[in-house]
Nucleic acid binder design. Structure first.
Lengths: 208, 208
DNA sequence: TAGATTGTTAATCGATTAACAATC
DNA sequence: TAGATTGTTAATCGATTAACAATC
C-alpha cells in the first residue's frame, strides 16, 4: 500500500482536474507548474509537491502535457471507471444534483432514488426510478452500490447512513447539516451548504 | 484591528454554531470542551484554542453555558444582524437554495433574483421578484447589497462577479465551478459541489 | 474545600515554501 | 549546447496537541 497522502493535497486534486479540463478543452498542449499554479492562486512548489505524491508526470525543461496530465489525474481520482450511486431524498437539493449532467458524464450512475413521498414513489426523475425509502436495504442487497448520496432531512440522515453502510456502501456523500458517524472503512464527504454561507458572513464580520 | 484569525479556526466556527444550536434546542444547559469536542471529532484543546481567538466564554470548573456560547458565536459570525443578498441564476441550484428557509430565518434576505430566461423574468420565486440580469448593475446602484450569490452558468460567472463587485457587494457566494478573480477587499466563498464528489471518489480510490 | 475545567503557553507535528541538482 | 523546468530535499512556517497554572 502506498503511503498515505496528505488530506490537503487530496483536496486540491479536484481543482487541478477541473482546470486541466478547461485547458484541454481550449486546446492548450503544454503548461508549466508556474503558469498552472499562478492561475489557481497557489505556488508552483505546492503544485509540484502535490503531483509528486502520485507519480512523475512532467518533463524537465518542458513542463506538463495537458492531455497526459489530465488523464493521469483522472485515473488517480478514479474517474476512469464507473461508480454506482443511490440517492436518498428527492427534495430540492436532490433534484438539483440529479439534473446536473456533469456527474453521469463522469461515470457516476445513479441507479435508484429513494424517497418517502407518495407523490413521487413509483415515478421517474431524470429517467431514474423512484422507490420508497423502506426498500433501500433490499435494493442494496441485490445491487452493488459504492456511493450513497444523502439529501434527506437531517432527522433521518444518520439512520439513512446506517442503512447505506449496512448495505455495503463504502462512500457517503452527505448534504444534511449534521455530523454523521460511520465506521472507519467508509469514506465520508459532506457538503454543508449553509456552513459555507455562515463562514462567508463570519469572514466579512471578522475581516479576514 | 484584531489580529487575523487562522483560516482553519474560522472554518470550524459554523460547525460549532450548528452543534450548539442542536444542544440548545434539546435544552442542554452546560457543556464542557471535552464533551463538545468529542461529539465533533476534534480535541478539547483545539476547541478551546479556537474559541479563545474570539474571547473568553467559559468558566473554570464548569464549562460553557450552551445558550450564552451560542449567542456569542452567532454574534462573532454576524448572525445577529440582517444581510441583504441578490441571487444571480435561478436554475436548479439557485431554486434549491431559495427554497431553503434556513437562510431567511438567520437574517439572510434575498432582495432580488436575476436570470435571463423570459419564462421567469417578471415572475416571483418564493415571493422574491425575478428581474432580467441586464438590470443587475442598476439594481445594485439603488439598493445596498452585501452578498451576491452566483448560481449562474460557469460561462458568465466571472462577468457576474465583476458586476457584483462594481455594484459594491463585499461578499460573493459562488456555486459555479470556476476560480473567480475578485479584488482583495471582497470575500469569496465557493461551494464546488462536484469537486466534493470527485474528492470522495479520489479518497476511495487512494484509500485515505 | 476538593474536583473539575478553563485559557494559555510550550512542544510537537504537518504542510508550505524555497532552493537546487538532475535533465529534457 | 544553453535555457527552462522538473522532482525532491531542506528550511520555514503555521496549526494542532499537550500540559498546567489559574480559578470557579
Amino acid at each position: 500500500m502506498r503511503p498515505a497522502i496528505s488530506p490537503r493535497t487530496l483536496a486540491r486534486l479536484p481543482m487541478y482536474y477541473r482546470y486541466l479540463e478547461d485547458l484541454n478543452r481550449q486546446g492548450v498542449e503544454r503548461i508549466s507548474s508556474h503558469l498552472l499554479s499562478g492561475r489557481l492562486g497557489i505556488t508552483a512548489s505546492q503544485l509540484r509537491q502535490d503531483l509528486s505524491a502520485f507519480g512523475q508526470f512532467g518533463q524537465q525543461g518542458y513542463g506538463y502535457r495537458v492531455d497526459e496530465l489530465l488523464r493521469s489525474v483522472a485515473k488517480v481520482m478514479g474517474l476512469d471507471r464507473e461508480h454506482n450511486l443511490v440517492l436518498v431524498g428527492a427534495g430540492n437539493i436532490g433534484r438539483a444534483l440529479l439534473s446536473y449532467d456533469n456527474f453521469s458524464r463522469r461515470g457516476f450512475k445513479v441507479l435508484r432514488i429513494f424517497d418517502v413521498s407518495p407523490d413521487i414513489v413509483g415515478q421517474r426523475i431524470n429517467d431514474i426510478p423512484v422507490d420508497h425509502s423502506r426498500n433501500l436495504a433490499a435494493f442494496l442487497a441485490e445491487h452493488p452500490v459504492e456511493i450513497g448520496v444523502i439529501t434527506a432531512p437531517s432527522a433521518v440522515a444518520q439512520q439513512t447512513a446506517d442503512l447505506l453502510v449496512a448495505g455495503g456502501v463504502t462512500g457517503i456523500w452527505n448534504f444534511a447539516p449534521v455530523q454523521l458517524k460511520v465506521p472507519s472503512h467508509v469514506f465520508l464527504e459532506h457538503v454543508h451548504i449553509s456552513d459555507s454561507l455562515f463562514l462567508l458572513s463570519l469572514r466579512m464580520q471578522a475581516g479576514c
